[in-house]
């Protein structure tokens, strides 16, 4: 059963900030609840005052603005993201990553912002947001700040969020024109699972030059973008050499652990195999 809890459901950001100020570390944001309720039940989560943000209208935004990009509010469910034809076409790497999170039923509750705030190394949306160079808009009583997603995660289940701060939305900028994005995820089964390893890739042309961005889940304490591998790919050589160089660099930069979902060696192999497959597709498509 869940531990004894208190619950509030503010209707505005102002009310939200008040609650957060009052309860400090005891407070925890409740959006979809699909991760939070499990960690409360397991007594891993210590907060005992849940602040349900689903009634705050401002957090419900899912919109695309030409030039600015895509805005995904804190209470936007994965289901809504998947139903957006625009996201599917314009941000396929994000769409694919979101598709692999949980299952159809969980997606009715789970949110993208929750996925990143939970800060699991296995968060599937994180590598996609990393290669899309998304920004996280954080608000608090004191004001707001915008942080690039690659500065957001600080450790296993840890983010830069300070007490009293809330993620209002994630802003995903316009991807480079004619880019191609994919998320490859290895699971223990075919149906649905947490990632043993996930790799997001974004490929695009800078002039005639093919550029790639690569980011990973479940290979380090945080979701990880590996710029060194991207650069290794950019240097001279045949496509095959460039791919292999990127694969090598990526495999040196990851620090996977062995756990019940996969051993470090297997994860390392998957980093190589999935990176290679992803880059080959980039080369073919972009």
């Amino acid at each position: 059963m869940l531990p004894k809890l208190e619950y509030s459901s503010p209707k505005t950001l102002e009310e939200l900030f008040e609650v957060l100020e009052k309860y400090q570390e005891k407070a925890k944001i409740l959006a979809g609840g699909t991760d939070l309720l499990v960690s409360l039940r397991d007594r891993v989560e210590k907060a005992r005052h849940l602040v349900d943000i689903k009634k705050i209208k401002e957090l419900d935004r899912l919109e695309y603005r030409k030039g600015e990009g895509l805005i995904i509010g804190a209470t936007v469910t994965l289901r809504r993201i998947l139903e957006s034809q625009l996201i599917r076409e314009k941000y396929p790497v994000l769409w694919e990553a979101v598709k692999t999170i949980g299952d159809v039923i969980l997606k009715n509750r789970a949110t993208l912002v929750g996925n990143i705030c939970n800060a699991s190394p296995a968060a599937d949306s994180a590598p996609a947001l990393l290669v899309l160079e998304a920004n996280v808009r954080i608000v608090s009583k004191e004001g707001s700040r915008e942080v690039p997603i690659d500065k957001f995660f600080t450790g296993v289940k840890k983010t830069i969020l300070r007490s009293g701060e809330v993620v209002k939305e994630v802003v995903v900028p316009e991807p480079p024109s004619n880019s191609f994005g994919r998320y490859l995820k290895m699971m223990r089964v075919w149906s649905e699972d947490l990632a043993i390893v996930g790799v997001a890739g974004l490929g695009y042309r800078e002039g005639r030059e093919l550029r790639v961005r690569l980011a990973y889940s479940s290979v380090a304490p945080t979701p990880l973008r590996i710029r060194e591998a991207e650069e290794a790919f950019t240097r001279d050589g045949t496509m095959e050499e460039r791919i292999e160089r990127a694969v090598q660099v990526a495999s040196q930069r990851v620090s996977p652990i062995s756990d019940v979902r996969g051993s470090a060696e297997y994860r390392l192999n998957l980093v190589k195999v999935l990176t290679r497959r992803l880059l080959k597709q980039m080369v073919e498509v972009v």
Partner: peptide, 23 residues
């Protein structure tokens, strides 16, 4: 799956996988 002390590491359906419709 056990640790070296004989403690089960996967006592839930998240990590003890059984076939789903897609499998």
């Amino acid at each position: 799956r056990y640790d070296e002390n004989g403690k089960m590491l996967n006592p839930n359906l998240t990590d003890y996988k059984i076939a789903r419709a897609g499998d």
